[in-house]
């Protein structure tokens, strides 16, 4: 009897906030502890820190870059490329995904070609893009757009294919027009999958911006990486990597926060990640 009571209490308590501690604090435990331990080992002279600089050294480098205004230039350049590349890739991905998802003719016509293009490693396009678009921004943006396009396209097309036909039939039974059906049934139905697709597209955007900047740029976080390698400054490389980690996590978080009001109806289980 008392057993069943405790179980009931426990299941009731789990979805609630865990006693005041914000959940992101848990996420910080591992990296912060690791950094602190390494710093300690470095201070005690236990590690040779020439190739893997101590966290304090990385922080110092970051601060120096920030003070001189360099860091904001690099971050702005990288974010600008991602914004344009991801914007272009995501918009075309959503449009073509909706098209092939909702029309069998369009799917038969377009999907095989797009799948074949997807099989090409995106980096293989680089020489062609440089020949066509030059070595400056357009070729970089094109590469990022290609990288972002495929996960978004596949996600949107798949989400339309997965719409429950029984629910669409409810719309028909209530005599919704084609536009009303799209707005009141299809759009909300594909929204969760589409948001996941956009998030993975953005993740790939960060991957390809690094590739683009490593291959030739005079500014951007990727340029900082190459520069750090050529000048033997591992602290600068790690500073740049740290920026990527923070920016990537932050931009993903922005998508999650911005779309949360649209997805409150989903199971709290899916939301609690």
């Amino acid at each position: 009897m008392s057993d069943t009571q405790t179980i009931a209490v426990a299941t009731q308590a789990t979805p609630r906030k865990q006693r005041g501690v914000p959940s992101f604090v848990y996420g910080l435990i591992l990296p912060v502890t690791a950094a602190a331990l390494y710093e300690l080992a470095f201070r005690m002279g236990m590690v040779e820190a020439r190739l893997l600089p101590a966290p304090s050294r990385i922080a110092e480098t970051l601060l120096k870059l920030a003070r001189s205004g360099e860091l904001s230039v690099h971050i702005a350049a990288t974010l600008m490329r991602i914004a344009f590349g991801f914007g272009l890739g995501a918009v075309t991905g959503v449009l073509l995904g909706v098209l092939t998802g909702s029309s069998i003719t369009a799917r038969r016509l377009l999907d095989p070609t797009l799948q074949a293009l997807r099989a090409i490693p995106s980096l293989a396009w680089v020489p062609l893009f440089i020949l066509w678009l030059g070595i400056f921004e357009p070729s970089k943006i094109a590469l990022i757009a290609v990288g972002c396009f495929f996960p978004v396209y596949l996600g949107v097309m798949g989400s339309i294919a997965n719409i429950d036909r029984k629910i669409v039939e409810v719309g028909r039974a209530f005599r919704l027009s084609r536009t009303a059906l799209a707005r009141r049934i299809l759009l909300p139905a594909i929204l969760p999958d589409t948001i996941v697709a956009l998030r993975s597209g953005l993740g790939l955007g960060f991957m390809f911006v690094v590739a683009a900047e490593i291959m030739g740029a005079s500014e951007g976080l990727g340029y900082l990486l190459v520069d750090g390698q050529q000048l033997g400054k591992p602290d600068q490389i790690l500073a740049s990597i740290l920026c990527f980690a923070v920016l990537g996590k932050l931009s993903d978080w922005i998508i999650v926060i911005a779309t949360r009001p649209l997805l409150t109806w989903q199971d709290s289980f899916a939301r609690s990640e």
């Binding site: 029984k166 629910i167 039939e169 209530f174 005599r175 109806w265």
Partner: peptide, 29 residues
């Protein structure tokens, strides 16, 4: 010939729209 306002339909499964609240589901039509 097609779904008509004079005819209402209840399916074997409830077929509620998961993104609408109970009240919004009832008010769908």
């Amino acid at each position: 010939f097609a779904p008509h306002p004079a005819i209402g339909m209840v399916f074997q499964e409830a077929r509620l729209l998961p993104w609408l609240t109970v009240a919004q589901n009832i008010g769908f039509g």
